[in-house]
Nucleic acid binder design. Structure first.
Lengths: 131, 131
DNA sequence: ATATGTGCAAACTGTTTGCACACGA
DNA sequence: TCGTGTGCAAACAGTTTGCACATAT
């Protein structure tokens, strides 16, 4: 768990260089700054591998894109349906995972997404109607 | 918000007739028992419409399929990476949404997914390696 | 008649995969 | 040399969408 290829290293680095939750395509473009010859397929392959080993998190917020997160600690994802931004909210304790454990379920990864309107959009009165 | 077509009614009914979290295709096959001529496109269109109005929930557990849930109350989804089953766990209170509110975020829908191994799979020693 | 919804099938798009080649041990 | 990973591009699959027709008011 150390012998990373240059490509995987760059992918991991790109993901950890941001506090957003980028898509595969964003990472692809980012990594190309360092390794112009890298291919999208390689990005997907490595992201899948990293997610499978638990080194990164794959988050599906329902916008049709897979998002990735270098922060694997349990935290809330606040997904704004107005600007599309995904905000993090650190959790002091993961009561939900504990609850799941009490019910016989063995938690491994937790992905909590709350959809709504973020503070900024609300302030700008960019509120979207009932949609 | 009452004038539902026969198709939409059937889709809603099919979704609420099960305690699983079916995919669009499952619903499609289910509804075809009543309305054999219904098309997949119609199912998708209605599911999207129902999810947009908040009458149902669209859940992405990262298996490549969109899952739908007729229960829109905040609850945990326990996704077993062994058998693929999605279990519900009712929440008495949604502390996370409250936390988000305190941080200026206006929650509308909450989707909590915990990945792990369910009780049944664990009992059967179907435990999957580090994967 | 008009507006809304449907069935059908083609199109779309993010993701996956096969294959030949490159690189490190 | 051998195994693993890469680049490329074609293939895949779930979902969306355009269009003509059906249905209800």
């Amino acid at each position: 768990m150390k012998n990373y290829s240059r490509q995987r290293e760059a992918i991991l680095q790109a993901l950890r260089s941001t506090d957003t939750h980028p898509t595969a395509n964003w990472i692809y473009n980012k990594v190309r700054e360092q390794i112009p010859s890298i291919s999208l397929g390689t990005v997907y392959r490595n992201l899948s591998a990293l997610a499978a080993t638990g080194e990164i998190l794959a988050i599906d917020v329902g916008d049709g894109f897979e998002h990735y997160d270098g922060d694997i600690s349990p935290h809330l994802h606040l997904s704004c349906r107005c600007c599309g931004n995904i905000e993090d909210l650190v959790l002091e304790s993961d009561a939900f995972s504990q609850l799941a454990s009490e019910h016989g379920f063995s938690p491994e990864t937790s992905i909590y997404v709350i959809y709504g309107i973020c503070k900024k959009c609300k302030k700008q009165n960019l509120n979207i109607g009932g949609n």
